[in-house]
Simulated scan of single mutants.
Amino acid sequence: MLPTYRDGDVLLVVRGVRPRPGRAHVVRLPPDAAGRPRPLSVKRVTGRDPDDPERWWVDSDNAAEGATSFDVGSLADEDIVAVVARLVRRALG
């Protein structure tokens, strides 16, 4: 999620709330093309999937890298784990 967040940043997240379009969220992405699970990720929820309003569309703040819904498809409600409430501590370096 560069430039917004970087490896090692400490984020305060809130579980159990509805996704909030425009905000960063902790999400569970589907397995990669080889079937390997991906780690939890921080992605920006941009809104409902236009083709399936029951699912969420996610994007990355770094256009040069990072998986988005263009790569992995939209996500179900249960894949949106938490909303990022704030950056608590910036990583050193």
Rank of each mutant, 00 (worst) to 15 (best):
D9A: 04
D77S: 13
M1S: 15
D49E: 00
W56M: 03
Y5W: 08
D77I: 06
G73H: 01
V26I: 15
R90V: 12
D49A: 06
D49I: 00
W56S: 02
F70W: 11
G22M: 03
A63L: 14
A67Y: 14
A33K: 12
E78H: 13
R20M: 13
R20W: 09
R20L: 14
T4H: 10
V84H: 03
V10T: 15
V14H: 09
E65H: 10
G47S: 01
A64D: 14
D9Q: 02
R44H: 02
A24S: 15
L75Y: 10
D77Q: 12
S74T: 13
G66L: 04
A76S: 13
T68E: 00
L29A: 09
R20A: 13
D59K: 07
R18D: 15
M1K: 11
L40W: 12
A33D: 15
S60C: 10
L75I: 06
V10A: 12
S69L: 02
L87W: 06
D7T: 15
V83P: 03
P30V: 05
E54H: 14
E78A: 12
G73D: 03
D49F: 00
D77M: 06
G8W: 04
G35D: 07
E54N: 10
R38Y: 05
R6H: 13
H25V: 04
S74D: 02
D9C: 05
D59R: 11
V13C: 15
V14P: 00
E54A: 15
P30F: 08
E54G: 14
H25S: 02
D71A: 10
D79A: 15
D7E: 12
A67C: 09
S69N: 00
P21S: 03
A85S: 10
P19S: 06
D71L: 05
D77A: 14
A24W: 02
P50H: 00
V27I: 12
N62C: 08
V14K: 13
P53Q: 04
A76E: 13
P39N: 04
P21D: 01
V45W: 00
E65R: 09
F70S: 13
P3K: 08
G16S: 07
A33M: 07
L40V: 05
V58R: 00
V84W: 01
L2A: 14
D71F: 05
